Simulated scan of single mutants.
Amino acid sequence: MKLSELVTHTSDWVGVPRTVVESHARYLREAGLLTTGGRGLAASEMNDDDKVRLLISVCGTSVASDAAARLNDWLNCQSVEVVQSDAPFRFEFPTKSTLPSALIAFFKRDLQSAEMKAWKSGERFEKPRGAQFQATSDMLSLIFVIDSIRANINLQRVAVVDSKIEAKQTISNRFALTLDFSKPLPIGRKENYRAKAEFTCQLSEENLIGWSGCFDE
């Protein structure tokens, strides 16, 4: 897939105007953060790193002109919390220590795997003796908290018996910039304190499955 095709694909499945995605791509390319070379039919093919870098930039940067600096922050994010909820599944993304590697594992191996099909079908829930689950529901999401450089790849599902939630499972991998513990953390509320808003971008299952198609080309 060429960069121009990836820009259109990302715009379609993330819901961001193509002109905005194109601006992100231009700033990243100028900073040497995307593969470059050739034009038109001779243009370079985007590799796996290129694809997730553009996705991270579009979802994790509020202003395109900041794309290069913000992407470097995202690339330095480390896994800070893995949740598996005793769920007997072998997904690859929870084993990754960096956000790009976890995203590549999630999109290329986990999202369309037999494990994911079993997860979505409600298999492998621990059932109370004699109980029959009336329904199961699941949610897949990728969340970027833009201002504080945090991200979460998250799977959740619940099982319902007699209109009550009887079982819940979560598998997630949370990422953040490494904290510098040599600096004292602020304690207490300062005078004239105002809580700041956290700008987030959340991709749902439809977004994720649609965007993952770029790895098939």
Rank of each mutant, 00 (worst) to 15 (best):
residue 30 E to L: 04
residue 24 H to P: 02
residue 113 S to R: 01
residue 109 R to E: 14
residue 155 L to G: 11
residue 173 N to W: 11
residue 61 T to M: 00
residue 149 I to L: 06
residue 94 P to F: 13
residue 200 T to C: 06
residue 131 A to T: 07
residue 161 V to N: 03
residue 24 H to W: 07
residue 85 S to K: 00
residue 134 Q to H: 09
residue 128 P to D: 08
residue 154 N to Y: 15
residue 194 R to L: 09
residue 144 F to D: 07
residue 186 P to S: 15
residue 99 L to I: 02
residue 110 D to C: 05
residue 144 F to N: 04
residue 21 V to M: 05
residue 169 Q to Y: 05
residue 84 Q to W: 05
residue 43 A to W: 09
residue 188 G to A: 09
residue 126 E to S: 08
residue 181 F to N: 13
residue 38 G to I: 00
residue 208 L to E: 12
residue 37 G to R: 02
residue 26 R to H: 15
residue 6 L to H: 13
residue 11 S to M: 00
residue 64 A to F: 09
residue 182 S to H: 10
residue 11 S to W: 01
residue 51 K to R: 12
residue 162 D to K: 02
residue 117 K to I: 05
residue 145 V to R: 12
residue 139 M to E: 14
residue 52 V to P: 01
residue 182 S to T: 13
residue 136 T to E: 14
residue 196 K to D: 12
residue 26 R to Y: 15
residue 124 R to K: 14
residue 126 E to H: 03
residue 56 I to W: 01
residue 121 S to I: 00
residue 39 R to W: 11
residue 210 G to C: 05
residue 43 A to P: 07
residue 129 R to C: 03
residue 61 T to A: 04
residue 191 E to C: 00
residue 85 S to D: 12
residue 97 S to W: 12
residue 62 S to A: 10
residue 116 M to C: 01
residue 180 D to W: 08
residue 154 N to S: 15
residue 184 P to E: 15
residue 196 K to C: 03
residue 209 I to A: 10
residue 46 M to S: 13
residue 180 D to G: 11
residue 172 S to L: 10
residue 180 D to V: 03
residue 29 R to C: 08
residue 64 A to L: 00
residue 4 S to N: 15
residue 21 V to F: 04
residue 161 V to W: 05
residue 96 K to I: 11
residue 169 Q to D: 08
residue 28 L to T: 04
residue 90 R to G: 12
residue 29 R to G: 14
residue 14 V to P: 13
residue 73 D to G: 07
residue 182 S to L: 01
residue 12 D to W: 02
residue 194 R to T: 12
residue 51 K to F: 06
residue 194 R to H: 09
residue 6 L to Y: 12
residue 103 L to C: 09
residue 153 I to Y: 07
residue 181 F to P: 00
residue 91 F to N: 07
residue 157 R to L: 09
residue 174 R to L: 11
residue 166 E to N: 05
residue 140 L to H: 06
residue 99 L to H: 01
residue 178 T to Q: 12
residue 21 V to S: 03
residue 190 K to L: 06
residue 200 T to V: 09
residue 3 L to P: 09
residue 76 N to D: 15
residue 43 A to E: 14
residue 89 F to C: 01
residue 139 M to L: 10
residue 167 A to T: 02
residue 147 D to S: 06
residue 197 A to N: 12
residue 97 S to C: 09
residue 179 L to G: 13
residue 42 A to Q: 11
residue 122 G to D: 06
residue 186 P to F: 13
residue 45 E to A: 11
residue 159 A to L: 04
residue 135 A to H: 06
residue 128 P to T: 05
residue 116 M to D: 10
residue 147 D to Q: 08
residue 39 R to A: 10
residue 213 G to R: 09
residue 164 K to C: 01
residue 169 Q to T: 00
residue 59 C to Y: 00
residue 30 E to T: 05
residue 140 L to F: 00
residue 23 S to A: 14
residue 31 A to L: 02
residue 63 V to I: 10
residue 14 V to D: 14
residue 44 S to F: 03
residue 163 S to N: 07
residue 61 T to H: 02
residue 155 L to H: 15
residue 210 G to W: 06
residue 38 G to H: 11
residue 80 V to D: 14
residue 88 P to V: 09
residue 42 A to W: 13
residue 74 W to T: 04
residue 71 L to Y: 12
residue 33 L to F: 04
residue 145 V to H: 11
residue 96 K to L: 14
residue 90 R to S: 15
residue 138 D to W: 15
residue 56 I to T: 04
residue 195 A to S: 13
